[in-house]
Amino acid sequence: MCRWMAYSGDPILAHDLLFRPEHSIIDQSLHAKLGGFTTNGDGFGIGWYGNGNGEGAAPVVYKSTHPAWNDENLREVATQIRTPLLFAHVRASSGTPVQRSNCHPFRYGRWMWMHNGSLAGFQEIKHDLLMAVDASLFPGIEGSTDTETLFFLALTFGLADDPPTAVARAVGFVEDVGRRHGVEYPVHMTVATSDGESIWVFRYSSEKATSSLYYSTDVSQLRRLYPELEVLDRLGADARFIVSEPLGELPGAWNEVPEGSWAFVRRGEHGIQPFHPTVPA
């Protein structure tokens, strides 16, 4: 399984997000603790908004097939990126090739998408899934992963208008197709998606045994718990992290996203709701 993290808050150097935490996403690329794989070395990617690329502009992505822990270019680039919203992903391939177009996060217009998990029996159901992607969107598919296919299904089912409903329809469609092909548990996912203003995350699996997902406690509460930690003073009041596994061992710093739920984060606002797939008409 892959590992990922998302950040929303005041603009901050990407280097501080990627490399400084005790159990950073870079450390997780080599020493993951909660996933099915300790090593996530089949490439990496980061995507971000802002940093002078214009209000309303599409996100910028930087991807490589190199292991994240061994990419000096990433370390250099990260010192020059200051962003209010960052996605980072380290990959453990579930069978598709190790190539740049298969590295997360995926991007279409203003939207980004990254995923930990898999669509079971993907090679057997791939044709049916891809044929359901809207024809106007289809040329945007660059790679061969189940993750990108799920992204474009969500776009087809209205991601830009209503992300929770669109993802519920995409997942419901995959489960329906999978089960018609004899796949008992078609979907396993923790997903993050963003339009640059908000982040939506989803934790769901058909077998109700989904990989871990956590969100950070309110920064003001952390400051009260740990007044000696100066690093917390550099984070704005709205700072939030959503991560595959905690970036450190501070008690009270992390909350688990409940099984079978979706959550949203935007400046000054966040919430969690149950997630229920629906089969599109």
Rank of each mutant, 00 (worst) to 15 (best):
Y7H: 03
A209T: 05
I12G: 00
E228R: 15
I12N: 02
Y7C: 10
A57S: 15
A263W: 01
H181S: 05
S206K: 03
G43H: 04
W4S: 06
P163A: 09
W113G: 02
S205N: 03
V265T: 06
R82M: 10
V133C: 10
D71V: 00
Q80V: 12
C103H: 06
A132S: 11
R82V: 09
G271C: 11
G172H: 09
V231L: 01
A281V: 13
M1G: 15
H276I: 15
T147M: 09
G9N: 09
E245D: 11
L235P: 00
F173D: 00
N116M: 10
R169V: 06
G54W: 11
G143P: 05
L155C: 08
P21W: 05
S211G: 13
G268F: 13
Y7G: 02
R234E: 00
Y62W: 07
N51A: 15
A92Q: 09
R240A: 13
D10M: 08
H23E: 12
G45E: 04
P251Q: 12
V171P: 02
P67Y: 12
R240Y: 00
F151W: 02
H23G: 02
G109M: 07
G140W: 07
T190A: 10
M112N: 14
V265K: 01
D161L: 07
L232I: 09
G268D: 04
A192N: 02
R75G: 07
A263M: 15
P227W: 02
T165G: 01
V133H: 06
F157V: 10
V77P: 00
L86G: 06
A88S: 05
L225V: 01
A58R: 12
A253Y: 08
E197S: 11
R100L: 15
P280R: 05
G158R: 08
T217V: 11
V90G: 09
I141Y: 00
V133Q: 11
A170I: 05
W111G: 05
E245H: 12
G252P: 12
V231M: 07
L74W: 10
A78V: 00
A160W: 02
L155Q: 07
E228M: 09
E249C: 05
E76R: 12
I46V: 14
A192M: 14
T190M: 14
D71Q: 04
